[in-house]
Nucleic acid binder design. Structure first.
Lengths: 358, 358
DNA sequence: CTGTTAGCGCGTTCAC
DNA sequence: GTGAACGCGCTAACAG
């Protein structure tokens, strides 16, 4: 209609609300931003709110961001994603990659739920590529959550530590100074797993793991928990096994009646090795895994395993980050996993006891 | 130092770059925005670029968003996340939920990779709650990608269709008018699966599925593909089976030598039912699943299954959305899945042939 | 053809 | 409770 040189955004602005309620834009802003430290007469506030609602006023995010120099958005960096392994064709996705994605899915779910309930307007996702510069992040988010990939180095965290943003790392305890972390207590989880086996009467408990991926922080902690639990029970920890044939041999010779596997996938490999040798779980071997991956119910008819509280970890991460945004200091948090007892573990039985005595 | 009432952002602004290069801010903007339609002498442009680099100038995202009324961000709605099933405690996560999360992880990975390679600065994630209002989305993103949960209704898409944003739905073909979609061609995948079994000599092929989740779009299409493949081969499709005992009975009576299961999890259930009856895969039954979930390599010693290209679907979704942002029309896309042949399928064997003849 | 001027966009906040 | 400056990049209109 009106021949105007101004851009028409088709939105109701704060000025229109101000005009319609007979106050200044400043007053409208004070009322609607809900800050208690700007006193406005209750009657006025009420009128402004009603008019805003009637007019369908929605504050403009961009303008607010510009003025406040904040976004209300949190960044989520998925380290495993930036690795750019070409896995899209022919299902060439590696298994560990798939595991990561499962967990990232859970992490995203936990983050989204937490963000919504804690009134964080939005999460901004970035792949954890090395080129994750200041440039991309600055101005888009107020802080950063990093879903770390324990299989990779800490280069990403080192880089992110340089940013002028608070950073919370998930799923790791190895963080540069200045970065908060939230991790699962792998050691405690391992102790629970081994404790369960001890409670069933097993004493010859092996740790299955330490393959190519030894050196991985999580796995080291899990083995550490195994050692602690064994030692605390007055038993000698055994050297880690990572070979199905050797394990089968050890079982046959009565040297092993139970195994705590580093991961559920490792446990699945154990089951396959035993099956190939005509042995079964839990009759010949009690088996505990770690992770509770998708499909764990179908490993050995139901794998007893340590559940990692990924969603809770994510939620805690959001809380920690918001706290930092409010000035709280850097912190390190550990969350206890818990044991899911299914059908892959059983009391030490007569047959096992017998071969044990040989 | 200087007693200034201005906010100190500690950033290099376009004005400083302009001053340092001896031109106006307008010129700097023209040079750095890279738009060809604003002619600037090459020499000047070069100087400006150099100065900007030296000063470490980074355009302010908020200011740019405010002026251009665009964000360069795409929204990602995860429908499965908004359902708010309390699954964080005690591992009460349902299996289908876990499957969804796996796929959402893959989707996020695909989206992130695609976004980066297509120069989309950021993805903004939202849980697919019903309260996903205009309010939250408007001004934060230029368009929306929706990772649909086929187990739920289409209410979410109906709501999103009202928004003044282009929307691309992933993982569904049932979309309201005005919404683009990218889905896996479930029917084609099912035809591949059944074709594989036919090629191995099987003719008595059952479809395992149609339980509580019948009515789910994907599953209907998979069953449809089964029917088409059977019919095309001159065979009569059998009624869907969803009971392990009945299936075992049918196998024993020679009525079934192969099964195409609606999902990998369904296939896992079949394996368990057979194991309980002393039957094995693939000796007594050739089995094909659908999904290639994590752990599929461990079902029946390696489940033959239909791989869903989740990451590719996500990448295609980003392309489609960017195209729409450039004015391209609404479109519906189907991506072909492909068969992963592992060890759960084998040629029709003598024993099976014999019981077949009874 | 090259570059400048002068606001615009809109919510927030300081000084009165 | 108000007025007006402010945050900062973009671009239409204009001058040389």
């Amino acid at each position: 209609m009106a021949k105007s040189s101004k851009l028409e955004t088709g939105r109701v602005s704060i000025r229109e609300v101000a005009a319609a309620s007979g106050v200044s834009t400043a007053t409208v802003s004070k009322v609607l931003s809900g800050r208690a430290d700007y006193p406005v007469r209750a009657e006025t506030a009420e009128r402004v709110r009603r008019v805003a609602l009637e007019l369908g006023y929605v504050p403009d995010v961009a303008a607010r961001n510009l003025r406040t120099r904040q976004t209300g958005q949190l960044g989520v960096v998925l380290e495993a994603v930036g690795a750019s392994e070409p896995d899209s064709l022919l299902g060439a996705m590696t298994t560990s990659n798939a595991v990561r994605r499962t967990f990232d899915g859970a992490i995203m779910a936990g983050l989204s739920d937490a963000a919504r309930s804690l009134n964080v307007p939005a999460l901004v996702v970035y792949p954890g590529s090395s080129g994750l510069h200041h440039t991309y992040l600055d101005g888009r988010v107020d802080g950063l959550l990093v879903s770390c990939d324990p299989l990779r180095g800490h280069q990403l965290l080192q880089d992110l530590a340089q940013l002028p943003l608070p950073v919370v790392a998930l799923w790791t305890q190895r963080v540069p100074p200045g970065i908060s972390s939230v991790d699962v207590d792998h050691t405690a989880g391992a102790r629970q797993a081994v404790g369960h086996l001890l409670g069933l009467g097993h004493t010859r408990i092996a740790f299955y793991g330490g393959g190519q991926a030894s050196g991985v922080e999580h796995f080291q902690r899990r083995e550490q928990g195994y050692r602690e639990a064994m030692t605390a029970a007055g038993l000698s920890p055994m050297a880690a096994v990572h070979d199905g044939d050797l394990l089968v041999q050890a079982i046959r010779q009565g040297e092993v009646s139970a195994v705590f596997a580093e991961t559920d996938l490792g446990a699945a490999a154990v089951v396959q090795a035993l099956a190939g040798a005509g042995l079964s779980v839990p009759a010949d071997l009690s088996l505990v895994g770690f992770d509770d991956i998708l499909g764990a119910e179908y490993i050995a008819g139901g794998l007893t395993t340590v559940y990692q509280p990924a969603a809770e970890m994510a939620a805690e991460g959001v809380r920690v980050l918001l706290a930092r945004l409010r000035g709280k200091p850097v912190s390190q948090t550990l969350l206890s996993p818990h044991l899911l007892v299914r059908r892959s573990t059983a009391p030490l039985n007569a047959t096992q006891l017998q071969s044990l005595e040989n």
